[in-house]
């Protein structure tokens, strides 16, 4: 995997982590936030993996 794509993946997952786990919470009758708690954990793990790849490429 190239450094560019690792950076893009990291950026997207950092964004995903913010968008579905933070920000203003309004009570909605339809929201995917609660159902996607597991997705946040998965996203965090992928963020760590992509940072590790970037660190290896930098070294």
């Amino acid at each position: 995997m190239s450094q560019v794509s690792a950076e893009q993946e990291f950026t997207l997952l950092e964004l995903l982590d913010r968008m579905i786990d933070r920000g203003v919470v309004l009570t909605g009758d339809l929201t995917i936030s609660v159902a996607d708690v597991d997705l946040v954990a998965v996203a965090l793990n992928v963020v760590i993996a992509s940072v590790e790849r970037m660190a290896e490429l930098e070294a």
Binding site: R18, M19, I20, D21, R22, G23, V24, V25, L26, T27, G28, D29, L30, T31, I32, S33, D36
Partner: peptide, 23 residues
């Protein structure tokens, strides 16, 4: 602007007004 969490859907304008009023 303040970002609202992705996936927030309310049933109608009245529900949005109520949510804003409460907070």
């Amino acid at each position: 602007a303040l970002p609202v969490r992705f996936g927030t859907v309310l049933c109608d304008a009245g529900a949005v007004e109520q949510a804003l009023s409460e907070r």
